[in-house]
Simulated scan of single mutants.
Amino acid sequence: MYSKDNLIEHLKTMGIDARGTLLVHSSFKSIGEVEGGPDTVLDALIEFMKEGLLILPTHTWKYIDKDNPVFDVQESPSNVGILTEKFRKRPGTIRSEHPTHSVSALGKGAAELVQGEYKHDTPCARKSVWGKIVDLKAQVLMIGVDLTRCTFIHGIEEWVDIPGRMTDSHEALFSVLHTGEKIEVPSRRHCGLSWSHHFWKVDEVLEEEGAMSKGTFGNAESRVVDTEKTTELLTELLEQHPDLFSDNEPLEEKWRYYFQRKQSKA
């Protein structure tokens, strides 16, 4: 059974920057038995990042749609796991006001990070939280989940403007803000296939190029993604190969060693 101190030590071992910015995707069950359950996991993350900025997704895309269009920043539950739902209720956290892809943040710069998210008409706009974490040189910690759960990669596809990823038309969604004001947020959504199910294809490339490392958090195999390096690598790969995530087959060899060949020619 893991204690808070055990989990903090695992964060240190994985090379998390305690004074930087950390976004966490998670599967609580994957961690194994923890003294105190989910709250202890959050205690460990919060204590470790007390001098930095901690972010967890609190998405509502699963149930906020044209048939149920009103997101309430205070009341709408997260649909991406127990840790995220408990975190948004922690004292001091600030939740962003995007109707489908909100996050909750705690620490230095949290208010600036989440400000004005309801102004974006797509889930992962470059000027949204998902782009700001690149500018902050953030790390993304994937606890017990792989790259298929990495919302940030959706953002890179959006910024490169890969065809077929977003609806052309807008849904009339609404956000009830922290002030209580209800704002209409016309929103384009992810569409078509579940493209994120194919993100696993770049796991080895990111690791080999130093954009991602692996470790353990409790029992959970975990990934630490460097947002700046990953954006640089995947932007170039997607510009050269826009269909990169259009199928679920392993990465073709000509793309598998793309960066190694590029470096050898330099």
Rank of each mutant, 00 (worst) to 15 (best):
W61V: 04
K62F: 01
Y63M: 11
Y63H: 11
D65L: 00
D67Y: 13
D67I: 02
N68S: 13
P69S: 07
P69A: 03
P69Y: 08
V70G: 06
V70R: 09
D72R: 00
V73S: 08
Q74V: 06
Q74N: 14
E75L: 12
S76G: 11
S76P: 04
P77S: 06
S78H: 04
S78A: 15
N79D: 14
V80R: 00
V80P: 02
V80W: 00
I82A: 02
I82L: 14
L83V: 07
L83S: 06
T84E: 09
E85Q: 14
K86Y: 14
K86F: 12
F87V: 03
F87R: 00
R88P: 07
R88I: 07
K89D: 10
K89C: 11
K89T: 12
K89N: 08
P91R: 08
P91N: 13
P91F: 04
G92I: 11
G92V: 13
G92T: 06
T93P: 09
T93S: 08
R95K: 10
S96I: 10
S96E: 10
E97A: 15
E97Y: 01
E97I: 05
E97D: 14
P99A: 05
P99S: 03
P99Y: 02
T100H: 06
T100W: 06
T100D: 08
H101Q: 09
S102Q: 10
S102R: 06
V103R: 12
V103D: 11
L106E: 12
L106W: 11
G107E: 11
K108A: 04
K108F: 11
G109A: 07
A110L: 07
A110C: 08
A111H: 03
A111P: 04
E112D: 15
L113W: 07
L113Y: 11
L113I: 03
V114P: 12
V114F: 05
Q115I: 01
Q115M: 08
